[in-house]
Amino acid sequence: MTGGLIAVGMLPAAARLRAALCFGKGTTSMRVTLNYAACHGHQSCAIAAPEVFGADELGNAVVLIDGDLPEALHAKARRAAGNCPEHAIAIEE
């Protein structure tokens, strides 16, 4: 199942939507990925979505939630991605 979801994440958007529908998940699933190399520790993500992002011992970001985010956090996660000056956060919906 997990393998299936990762593969879904790598498909182009249209295919992903179709795949998501096939899995019966509708459009409510969301996960975040962090490009650690691009992250320079602004922490804007943790300010916008402290439930989703934290900091490692250098102050760079870590994703606190593995896998699908609860729906209640979707708006905050989107905001986090939109606040990162380094464009280091990707959202897959």
Partner: peptide
């Protein structure tokens, strides 16, 4: 403001190390 990719602390490798303290 919904999206605020501000760069008051700079960007890239020199991004302000003290930003958490400053905030």
């Amino acid at each position: 403001r919904e999206h605020n990719r501000h760069v008051a602390f700079g960007a890239g490798i020199h991004r302000c190390a003290g930003s958490n303290l400053a905030r």
